[in-house]
Write a protein that binds this DNA or RNA. Sequence first.
DNA 1: CCCATTTGACCTTC
DNA 2: GAAGGTCAAATGGG
Length: 264
Amino acid sequence: MEETSTPKRERLISELIKGRDSTMTLQNLLRRRFVDGGLVLAEDLLNKILESFSDSLSKLCSSGEVCPACDQSTCSDNRREMVVSAVKDRRGCYKRRKRENSRVKIDDTIEDGYGWRKYGQKTILDANFPRCYYRCTHKDEGCRALKQVQKLQDGPEMFQITYFGFHTCQNIKKQTQMFSDSEDLSTFLLNFEDSRINQSPSSPCTITDVHITPSLKQEEDSKAQSDDHDMSFGDIWTDMIGNLDPLYDDIFKDGISIDDFKFN
DNA sequence: CCCATTTGACCTTC
DNA sequence: GAAGGTCAAATGGG
């Protein structure tokens, strides 16, 4: 794998630091939820954070190379159109899925560590191979994660895999372990972004629901209500950095260490 | 027998 | 009406 050049590395670090700083500010804002304008500011900050993460991911993609985060050359604008979902009372009764809540990747295997059950297959116009539809094997536990697998025309072992929704079953625990893979880190970041896009306040798709064990204690938190927030943004950030693939870890070897990302 | 896959029907969206 | 997404009966494997 190609080494990240120093200027590129610095830009990447800069973007990540921006993300961290914005996240910290947002963290403080969220502690004062519903204080004048706080929600509006929080929304702006979220956009900043997501831009930073997206930019960082873009910089990790060589030009012309498929982005590991979304398998497209341009990361940010390709996961927008279609989607979600569906109250079904009878056979075939559903609402067409949109792509807002989707993450796309191209891989040489459809295996991703999760248990999936195939529930359909469809011939797609202008595609040489049928599209296969999978849902989580834990659907009976309420897990609504779905994925579509489309074998690509231009390669014998390349699949375009589109994920919808998030695992709310026990499968979810694998997500932190999967950060040892750089692509899975990207997936997590995309999940994070998508969860922001689609969250209603009552939606179950929150960082909390990822069930990552809290690891940091924030001193300001003594009074903060932690009833529905098991984990802070700082924790997540620390987890992400701490589980980076060696490729990303190299970035921190020279000029910057993980300690530089510590939260106050 | 249980569970996963296949496949045609059914439904929504465009 | 075409295309895509989902359902569920039928089927097959362990």
